[in-house]
Design a protein around this nucleic acid. Structure first.
Lengths: 267, 267
DNA sequence: GCAATTTGTCTCTTACAAAAGACACATGTA
DNA sequence: TACATGTGTCTTTTGTAAGAGACAAATTGC
């Protein structure tokens, strides 16, 4: 939980740049902030708190929430004065899945992979310039390695991040990575050049392994899914204990690469 | 497809009443219409068509679409000038699932049920006053009985509809059911009083069976899921061939009732 | 080849939505 | 009893977002 919140905090800078003052914000923007805030919070929120959370006037927040609830995008939660996502968003989400072969097959493949290997497996994508766990399947370890769907983590913290940026210009990479992103959870600081070198290596080898980046106990194996030659659309990734043997790791990487390749468009 | 479109057409009356003139609509409303239109269309749409579809000025539509795409709620589809739902909506949808025990367990149970029986199984709920298939699992019949997730069908056409309205006042029921809703796909017209009587019966027996309503070849078995004593939150339903034997039907109903009961909150 | 349509981006105006703030009504707590 | 703190609904005011329309560029059709 403490971990989850630390990560969630990174979500705060919602859509539409950093608000300097925030007075007389567009209604639609308010709504986008509200949705993003609920996503970061991951539970029903009182309308007052919501107003504070998105830094919007209370009156405005009340009206917007009412409209969104009427539309079914939000729902009043159990006790009666909290709101959270509504059924309509679920339906739209399912529409997205239906219209998206890669996601549909990727989810399936991730589930297979974690069942077969017993390890936590994830499907990751870039989501408006940020690394996002689009689907994850927990694996069977007693101490399950936490990672919730929809979490957004700085790109440099992850193996998948290195693959997702493969093929981008240096400038584009710099745009996507803030100074803060280079600081790992344990306080260590990556050098941007090292990160960019990692990306090149990942591109060349066709996979990526990172050890002890997000936490000291795991390593992360990732392989790219291509939507076109050279264009990395997603990655599949396995999170394994950091002391996993060389041999075992090699095995898993081979498996992972195969599955990721099977999802790729060209073949 | 012709069938799907006939049903989709029923979605058109989106949120916020029927627009008579439509001049100077609120931005948020336009967005809600856009989302609803995409949901009805079930595929990527050109921005021009979208503007026509939601009856909004082109300039406004362009601006809104750009904002929504930037926010990740929509995505530009393949060829480049069409839009459809975006990853963010998927993520929000998953958040909804995560925060909603009933839906999560219901999906699971529906999948089990269709695997065990081989029949198409569905989880249904009221969604802003309309019957909605929230999850469905196709079953194993060679001619699969069509029913897509997220479709909204007039309440009187379905067995689930009768259960979902159990416990409501007559006036409330009348509000939810339009004249058009009483006309079946084959042109027959239900009498409102008969429908209300059906609802009472369904409430009393704790399940509902309808034959040949949406089409001539199927019957629909449904059982209620309660969120509180007397409050029907959802229904589970099985779609079977209309010539299924009495005995077999009884068996399935018993199974269905058991599963639905296991999802209900009180016990 | 020249029309006719569609697409995407602009600018300018004013109708109207967002905000401020007052109000009424619950709570809890010194 | 007073005094915060949170909730939900009003009004009024004013800054601005929605809309009309004009434009160039890209697609169509004949």
């Amino acid at each position: 939980m403490q971990d989850g919140n630390a990560l969630a905090a990174r979500l705060d800078t919602g859509p539409g740049e950093d608000r300097t003052s925030g007075s007389r914000e567009k209604g639609l923007n308010r709504v986008l902030h509200i949705l993003e805030f609920l996503h970061a919070t991951q539970r029903a929120v009182g309308i007052g708190d919501l107003a504070k959370g998105v830094n919007a006037p209370r009156s405005t927040t009340y009206t917007l929430v009412r409209e969104l609830v009427d539309a079914g995008l939000l729902e009043m939660a159990g006790d009666g004065n909290r709101v959270y996502f509504g059924k309509k968003l679920y339906l739209y989400g399912m529409d997205y899945v239906r219209g998206n072969d890669l996601l549909r097959r990727g989810r399936q493949e991730v589930d297979n992979l974690s069942r077969e290997t017993g390890e936590t497996s994830e499907l990751c994508m870039l989501q408006s310039g940020r690394y996002t766990i689009v689907h994850s399947s927990p694996g069977t370890r007693p101490f399950r390695i936490s990672s919730a769907t929809g979490l957004q983590i700085p790109l440099p913290w992850t193996a998948s991040g290195r693959l997702l940026l493969a093929g981008l210009e240096r400038a584009a990479i710099e745009d996507m990575v803030s100074e803060d992103d280079l600081v790992l959870p344990d306080g260590r600081r990556l050098r941007l050049d090292d990160f960019i070198a990692d990306i090149a290596t990942a591109k060349a080898t066709g996979h990526c392994i990172t050890s002890g980046l997000v936490d000291a106990y795991t390593k992360c194996l990732a392989a790219p899914v291509f939507s076109a030659p050279g264009k990395v659309e997603a990655t599949m990734c396995l999170v394994v204990p950091i002391d996993t043997s060389e041999a075992k790791t090699g095995e898993l990487i081979a498996l992972l690469r195969g599955r990721a390749a099977s999802l790729s468009i060209p073949g």
